[in-house]
Computed example of a mutant assay.
Amino acid sequence: MISRPGAGRDRLPSLTGLRFWAALLVVLYHLSRQAGKVPGVSDAVWYGRSGVTFFFVLSGVVLAWTYDGANVPARVFFWRRFARIWPLLAVGVAASVAAYMYMDRAVSAKGVVANLLLVHAWFPQRVINAGGNPAAWSLSDEAFFYLAFPVLLALLAGRRARVWVWTAVGVTCAALVLWPALSGLPPATRSWALDYLPLTRFLQFVLGVVAGLALKRGWRPPVSLPVAAGLVVAWHLALLPWSKAVPDALWYSPYSASQLLSAPVFAALICAAARADLDGRRTGLGGTWMIRLGHWSFAWYLLHEIVLRLAVFRWDKPAPGGDTLVFWAGVLVTSLALAAVAYHCVEHPAERRLRRLVGRPSAAARPSSDVTAAR
């Protein structure tokens, strides 16, 4: 029997808190590469785009935990996911297009339409997969995961634990094989196939699903939360000497590796945090402000690069040193404040209203473990 956390919206609160740190990793990655480096910090987050991998694994864990045994019709599930991501996606695209127009930069109508239809990551052309709001490419991958999830759950939920173990091993090995297997492609095509293509990223989601099913059925990871967090930090620090020896443009650089190969350590971190919540232990990730920041993280992810783009356009890149710190602080505070407004004025109320329109389940059918950690 699984011990249940207390009632409330965030039943695995540490996972919601972890969302903020993953989003921060991505934000600092963009600041380091697009605005200028801060010594020490920029080195540690130079491959912080791996935070997207964290979100893909987290989505699988949370959806499996929430919907395993819930008997929710597929159409209701799909509508809930639409209500969860699309309203803020539309706002982010509109804000991004407005920013491009202010900067007098061309906007691809095809890219905007593909973005709004959540199919843009399927196209290798940069003008399409980065059209509209470039940060929203990952939502195209998530949309594919959502479409596949009911079938994936049906295939895996009734299996024995050893099937989940072999599935986790299989998708991890598949990522290891894909990395060198696609090395012969032209650099731009290889980058798209490894870093954007939903089929490639689906491996990370599947790993999250089997981890979520195992947690739901009573499995507890042997690794503690501090150890799992240490593994994540150690993995990113290990990339630093590698990055100094191999340029990112080469296939065996740590750029794609940081995203493809980080899924197991992120899965360990997520499972360790969930275990702490299920055991009733405090983690420092489930406090009031951490939950609040976790709720804002989706909007922060979608909006921060727009603020960064406008700041660089208006003031240019800052001079190294104190100016860079001031620039970073301004972008961080402004984008996070806008994310808070977007969450409270758009994301949360729109999701609540849209969810009421389709298939409100009875109390008996409603998922008993619905958590809000997934985007």
Rank of each mutant, 00 (worst) to 15 (best):
L18V: 03
V26Q: 07
V27Y: 06
L28W: 09
L28P: 01
Y29G: 00
P39T: 02
S42Y: 05
V45N: 04
W46T: 15
T53W: 01
F54K: 03
V57K: 00
L63C: 00
N71V: 08
V72N: 03
L89W: 06
A90Q: 10
A95F: 14
Y102I: 07
V107W: 15
V113F: 10
A121E: 04
A121C: 02
F123R: 02
S140P: 02
S140I: 02
D141P: 05
A143F: 12
F145N: 14
F145I: 05
F149T: 09
P150R: 06
W164D: 14
W166A: 03
C173L: 05
W179G: 12
L182N: 10
G184H: 14
D195G: 04
Y196L: 07
F202W: 11
F205L: 06
V206C: 11
A211N: 01
W219G: 15
R220W: 07
V233P: 03
H236G: 00
H236T: 06
S243N: 08
P254L: 00
P254C: 02
A257C: 07
F266G: 00
F266M: 01
F266S: 00
A268S: 12
I270K: 01
I270P: 00
R275H: 09
A276H: 06
D279C: 08
R282K: 13
G294F: 10
H295E: 15
S297A: 14
V307L: 10
L308D: 09
V312I: 14
W315C: 03
K317P: 04
K317T: 15
G322N: 12
D323H: 15
L325C: 13
F327R: 10
W328E: 04
G330K: 10
G330L: 07
V341E: 13
V341C: 11
A342Q: 04
P349I: 02
R353M: 06
G359R: 01
S368P: 04
S369W: 15
D370Y: 14
A373H: 08
